[in-house]
């Protein structure tokens, strides 16, 4: 099995200190503090609008934070620190940092004009300048891992939702990230297709991939998760081991939420 545990190991994989995010007048994140250790499967749950997806998108700088500090593997997201001054990173530098962070979207966002394998080799070839033949070899292995080697030549429109999402996972893995972000990866899927995607994610967790998963799949969180955070209204309400939080929530808001979804 592949060992996906990467990163320096000297720092937490993700560290957030008092992270704030405003969209105009709306205050979406109101001071998030949390730490994700390497090799950890970190689950984020909470009602819609609680800011969990926004927080996830801040980690790879798809959204800019408006306050606080956020670092990945010991390096600030979107800034460089020199002395006590912060310098914004150039677009190119931001792009370079994103190579190490894979992301899987709720709506898959596969490139529809490329076949499954073209989707997977696109970033290694264009961004990492990998040789096409090498990238193809690895892409086939990755498609094999997600159980779709035989669909390599299919366009996304010819695949089911679950298959598309598994190609999207392979596409993210092709960049050999040290951290994977999952933004409600099964929410857009028909119930019978959810299992295949979760199986792939479970396999990744077993191989030591650091994963942050925004999810409504409480079963997955309980079985696979190492840590779980319940967010509501832009704050972290409760943190703990998934088994503890899901079976014995301490806060009323957590209890109210879980009583609706379990």
């Amino acid at each position: 099995m592949t060992d996906f545990s990467k990163g320096t190991g000297a720092h937490p994989m993700v560290k957030a200190e008092a992270v704030h995010k405003h969209f105009g007048l709306a205050h979406i994140l109101k001071g998030i503090d949390l730490e994700v250790a390497p090799r950890e499967v970190f689950c984020l749950i909470g009602p819609s609008g609680s800011g969990k997806s926004t927080f996830l998108r801040c980690i790879n700088h798809l959204e800019k934070i408006s306050g606080g500090r956020l670092s990945v593997d010991g390096e600030l997201v979107g800034y460089r620190q020199k002395g006590d001054k912060l310098y914004e990173l150039k677009d190119r530098e931001v792009a370079a940092k994103r190579r190490d962070i894979g992301m899987v979207f709720q709506r898959f966002n596969l490139f529809p004009h490329m076949t499954a394998i073209e989707n997977v080799i696109e970033a290694p070839v264009r961004v990492k300048k990998e040789a096409k033949a090498v990238a193809r070899e690895r892409a086939l292995a990755l498609l094999d891992r997600v159980g779709l080697r035989d669909k390599a030549g299919h366009y996304p429109a010819q695949l089911s939702g679950g298959q598309q999402q598994r190609v999207a996972i392979a596409r993210a893995l092709a960049m050999e990230p040290k951290l994977m972000l999952f933004d409600e990866p099964t929410s857009a899927l028909d119930p019978e297709l959810v299992g295949d995607v979760l199986d792939v994610m479970r396999g990744l967790a077993e191989d030591g991939m650091t994963m942050i998963v925004v999810t409504h799949e409480m079963g997955f969180a309980r079985e696979v998760g190492d840590a779980l955070v319940f967010m509501d209204d832009g704050v972290v309400v409760e943190t703990g081991h998934p088994r503890d939080v899901l079976t014995d929530p301490q806060h009323d808001r957590t209890k109210a939420f879980l009583s609706k979804v379990l």
Partner: peptide, 27 residues
């Protein structure tokens, strides 16, 4: 072209130019 396409290519580490040439314009 859906904004999700640009997000996906950015998340993969592609630059603005690569995103435009490889992902957005073909669509």
């Amino acid at each position: 072209v859906d904004e999700g396409q640009t997000e996906a290519s950015h998340a993969l580490g592609m630059t603005q130019g690569q995103n435009l040439r490889r992902v957005v314009l073909p669509q």
